[in-house]
Amino acid sequence: MAVLDIKDVTKIFGGTVAVERFNLTVADGELVCLLGPSGSGKSTLLRMIGGFETATSGVIAIDGEDVTRVPPERRPTGMVFQSHALWTHMNVFKNLAFGLKLRRLPPAEIKDRVEAVLEQVGLAGYGQRQTHQLSGGQQQRVALARSLVLEPKILLLDEPFASLDQHLRERLREEVRDLQQRLKITTLFVTHGQDEALALADRIVVLRAGRSEQIDPPDVVYRAPATPFVAGFIGTMNLIDGVVEGGVFRHPGLDLAMPVADGPATLAVRPEALGIAAATSAAAVIHRVTDYGTHAIVDIDLADGLRLKAMAPDARAWAAGTAVALSPQAFAVYRDNVAIHRAGA
């Protein structure tokens, strides 16, 4: 359990900036998700914290101690890799015991600690199994146990469930969350799955091209995205470019009054916040209705070809070709990559 401080960290590979002037403080026992598309620098950042990459500049400190240049074998961190990275020539017990043996602990203590951590991850009695005899989920649990058995101050998880199927992924992430809360271990979790980040994290760091776009709790990131990129990346979002003239946002097929100065703007509306009503004007026409049972998603084409998504309670109420009027219930307005107005959130 520890506090992690990342100050002005930059990583440059050759001429490519992978992470740029990144700052973050992770509180003791907090679980922070690093979320972003491929190439956003989230794994590089995690690898710098783990010691597998060295920061070009900046400071990484754990409990106030600068570890920026400390090699991974001397850092108080434990990493779980995407590919499990289990040592296939060792059985489960030996995989877990390896780090403890390097620390020259007595065999009896090693046995006790390995058995205890196997119990914690739900693999009691699996010690003598070979790693290839385990399922993907069990292998990932062993990888997690291998890190936990050393009682690291910071637990780092690099897309640990990416290779697992959806059902197993959901189950494992709940288990990880329970375990993390029980052990109160400071954790960083890299993912490119927004649902995973929303379900797990105390805070989410949204990364784009090596820079953090937003660092906030999941509900804030979802309901009040700081930039159009975050708005578009988290959940489904309708992003509509238009112009504000005389306090009215104008886009073909959509006029919306708002207290915003004149100029170009981007309107962001979630499908569940986009109200639709039958209309006579053909400025917005339903293209397709997809029935999900509990709700329907209605695809709407605007006059300029932009396609929006709206959520409706009943698919049977709508049909393709119907003209509709749009009424955003909650929305945000962005200008120059900054939110300048929010309504109804």
Binding site: F52, E73, L86, R103
Partner: peptide, 14 residues
């Protein structure tokens, strides 16, 4: 794999 080597370094192997 690189990751199996990194995993070893991560648990303290020089």
């Amino acid at each position: 794999s690189d990751q199996s080597v990194e995993a070893a370094r991560d648990v303290g192997a020089r």
